[in-house]
């Protein structure tokens, strides 16, 4: 069976190109050698702290940013390099729901754009399809003639989701879809996304900094640190039975009601990745080998792996 989406050694480096005057800026590695396969209908959660390359990865997967190295294949096909976003296959739901809607267009104009440009539908067909989509995300058709500023964050995010679905994509990249929303609205949107996945047989890539959201929604979870996946495991056990020390640190740091504040590990995300394992400087288990070489993936199960020389023993 082919994967719905597969990334092989995907990398992205910013900077490094020569400027007109002066020296070249040092290159910054935003995403390093990321590989994963996501089966059709599966949800892969991608979790990490700010600056770990989550959004860069997401934008590459949606074709909004050309990778510096590696490959992406969707449904076994490789979208042509440099062909721009492959909107008909992969769609994107943005973090800032209002920022993703052009303030000077009506919702109708916004909703019609993908139907017209990607699917080439005529006006009556577009109207019918929009009505169907709005029904699916529980929005009123009267909203179509309004402008984005008239909506709350939760409503705007529903519009953003409806627009993403309009193109009939196989895969939807959800970039922090609920982090800009209020707590009480977050759950509404998460539940809507879960319902839509079932109804439209979608594959999700859910990017978030919120461990609990990722755990609740995903089938499998990739933990990103300094641009590399340090652990890829099933959602049910990634935090409960962490194998990578960084995953463990994340899980311990997440506040849980009733649990006293964790004895926090020192340090923060480094500015520039060092030689060897990027986490070594903060890791209590690191030894000389960790600081010398970057660890390769060690496969734990068919598709799951951990990038660590000295993974934690999982308590049985």
């Amino acid at each position: 069976m082919t994967a719905a989406i597969e990334a092989r050694n995907l990398s992205k480096t910013f900077g490094g190109e020569r400027r007109w005057f002066g020296r070249a800026r040092p290159p910054v590695c935003a995403v390093r050698e990321v590989s994963f396969r996501v089966a059709a209908g599966e949800t892969l959660g991608i979790v990490g702290e700010s600056g770990c390359g989550k959004t860069t990865l997401a934008r590459m997967l949606a074709g909004l940013l050309p990778p510096s190295g590696g490959r992406i294949s969707v449904d076994g096909k490789e979208p042509r390099a440099g062909a721009g976003p492959w909107g008909g296959l992969v769609q994107y739901v943005f973090q800032d729901p209002l920022g993703a809607l052009n303030p000077r267009k009506t919702i109708r104009q916004i909703m019609h754009a993908p139907l017209r440009h990607l699917l080439g539908m005529d006006a009556p067909a577009r109207e019918a399809r929009v009505a169907e989509l709005f029904d699916a995300v529980n929005l009123h058709l009267a909203f179509l003639d309004r402008y984005p500023h008239e909506f709350s964050g939760g409503q705007a995010q529903r519009i953003g989701i409806a627009r993403a679905l309009a193109a009939n994509p196989r895969i939807v990249v959800l970039d922090e879809p609920v982090s800009a929303l209020d707590v009480s609205v977050q759950a509404q949107v998460l539940n809507l996304l879960a319902d839509l996945r079932r109804a439209y047989h979608l594959t999700y890539l859910l990017i978030s900094h919120d461990l609990a959201v990722v755990e609740a929604v995903s089938d499998r979870v990739a933990v990103l640190y300094c641009g590399a996946i340090v652990e890829l495991a099933d959602a049910a056990e990634v935090f409960a039975r962490a194998r990578h020390p960084y995953t463990r640190l994340l899980a311990d740091s997440a506040p849980v009601p009733g649990r006293p504040p964790a004895a926090a590990a020192p340090g923060e995300l480094p500015d520039a990745p060092t030689r060897g394992c990027a986490f070594a400087a903060r890791c209590s288990r690191a030894d000389a080998a960790c600081r010398q070489r970057a660890p390769e993936p060690v496969y734990t199960r068919k598709e799951n792996y951990v990038r660590c020389f000295r993974p934690l023993e999982t308590p049985r």
């Binding site: 709350s152 939760g154 209020d182 707590v183 009480s184 609205v185 977050q186 759950a187 509404q188 998460l190 539940n191 879960a194 919120d210 461990l211 609990a212 959201v213 755990e215 609740a216 929604v217 049910a236 935090f239 409960a240 899980a251 997440a254 849980v256 009601p257």
Partner: peptide, 23 residues
């Protein structure tokens, strides 16, 4: 009660229960 239930918890293993509507 709604506010406590609607946020997913790590290790909670359940879908969050949403509060309908808006403030």
């Amino acid at each position: 009660a709604g506010l406590i239930r609607c946020a997913p918890r790590l290790g909670g293993g359940r879908r969050p229960a949403a509060i309908p509507g808006l403030p």
